[in-house]
Amino acid sequence: MNQMPDVIRTIPLEFYLYFSTALFAIGVIGVLTRRNAIVIFMCVELMLNAVNILMVALSSYRSDPNGQIFVFFIMAVAAAEVTVGLAIIVMIYRNIRSTDVQLMNYLKW
């Protein structure tokens, strides 16, 4: 079995770039266009993971472990964020019986 970086290097770097850019763009578009808070939340996760993939790829190609360490940080933070975020969404749902963000426009004036 080859080392993990070697496995990663079997795919050209450009592919990772295209892939994670596409993934990130999907995430952004999702956040912008969807109204369901859970979907928006998932799109945010998508964006985070797009970055993660890119970091892992670059870390392997440049033989710099820092990138992968960062990925772990991001995963940990994301996990914490999910906990808090989902809790907020549950609370919103309890209050307005919906997770539609368009209905949540109290945050003004």
Partner: peptide, 17 residues
Amino acid sequence: LRLTQSGVTGFYVFVMV
């Protein structure tokens, strides 16, 4: 200026992006 604060989260995110 407060008119820009519509309260719609989607709009905020859009402005941010």
